[in-house]
């Protein structure tokens, strides 16, 4: 009798704990054009064009290099960007200017609706009283000849903000470093190594994305903002320059960066609410963003 009871109980528990999975019909939505263009008054026009895929599609996302990409400045055609090959990149000759309204339209791709977006470059941030203080540092060379160390730096600065408009900023800092292109190479390439940053006062912090601190002007109009930078690197050498950047973003760029950073942070968190990434291309996806960089070199 005990055996039967145990058997019934086991079957029951087995049934109760069963988790049934089934495949659900999910609409395969038609692809749309995707354009990404970062306006910067220091760079010529560049746009990357690709197409979206259904979330169920395993294929690699394809770039598109056969489109007509037109740039309009204050309603007048400025230029048609030229395709530069299979990476879906299109380049122009001119650079965007502040105080102009730009519109980018993409069409001429069979099977796709034309897409467009509008935007302006933001005003450059006016920085003053930028100072840096090394809080702590450490450097030594080990028995193998490798040098390593770390450095804590604090930056203070003031952004003179235009109080009449809403402004959006990004703060980042980097140093220049070098690397060999490949193992046999003798030629050193220079690259920007960005430092990890955090605001001294959490009220400034809106979000961060890839070592870029993002903030809106609403809470600090005219105030001095302190930023702490901490970095640790194996080949630390005293006496390098740190480049401190304050990037002024237009609203679209800011919304994109904040939403993308959050989107990425919660990608695998089942308890977090999913995040839509901001897009401003009508009839498609992508971002026409604008930024203006103010840079200060800080010898340390």
């Amino acid at each position: 009798m005990k055996k039967y009871i145990a058997l019934i109980l086991s079957m029951y528990l087995f049934l109760a704990c069963e988790k049934v999975e089934s495949i659900v019909d999910f609409p395969m939505v038609p692809s749309k054009l995707v354009a990404n263009c970062e306006m910067n008054e220091d760079s010529v026009w560049m746009l990357q064009l690709s197409k979206s895929l259904s979330v169920l599609d395993n294929a690699e996302i394809k770039k598109i290099d056969t489109a007509k990409v037109k740039v309009y400045e204050d309603g007048q055609l400025l230029e048609v960007l030229q395709s530069a090959g299979s990476e879906g990149l299109y380049f122009g000759q001119s650079k965007p200017k502040s105080d102009k309204l730009y519109r980018i339209s993409v069409d001429g791709v069979t099977g796709f609706d034309s897409i467009y977006a509008e935007g302006r470059l933001p005003e450059k941030a006016y920085l003053k009283d930028v100072e840096s203080t090394v809080i702590d540092s450490f450097y030594q060379t080990d028995d193998w000849g490798y040098s390593y160390g770390y450095m804590d730096v604090e930056f203070t600065f003031t952004i003179e903000d235009n109080p009449n408009i809403e402004n959006f900023y990004g703060i980042r800092a980097y140093r220049l470093d070098t690397f060999y292109l490949d193992i046999d190479s003798t030629q050193l390439e220079v690259y920007k190594q960005y430092l990890s940053l955090e605001f001294d006062d959490p009220i400034f912090e809106e979000s961060s994305s890839w070592n870029l601190l993002l903030l809106k002007d609403a809470i600090f109009n005219g105030q001095t903002v302190k930023v702490k930078a901490n970095t640790y690197y194996y080949d630390y050498r005293p006496g390098v320059n740190i480049y401190f950047e304050c990037i002024s973003f237009n609203e679209a760029a800011y919304l994109y960066k904040v939403s993308y950073a959050t989107h990425l942070n919660v990608a695998n968190n089942p308890f977090a609410e999913p995040v839509q990434v901001y897009s401003n291309f009508e009839n498609g996806y992508g971002i026409l963003s604008g930024m203006a960089i103010t840079e200060k070199v800080m010898p340390l």
Partner: peptide, 30 residues
């Protein structure tokens, strides 16, 4: 809220000099 499409976003710099293409899952309306 479910994603319906995926697409390329602006490329990202990882802070060590590498530029990565980024892929975004697009959520339609909440």
């Amino acid at each position: 809220t479910l994603p319906i499409e995926r697409y390329l976003g602006l490329p990202n710099n990882d802070g060590y000099g590498y530029i990565y293409p980024t892929e975004i899952e697009h959520y339609d309306e909440k």
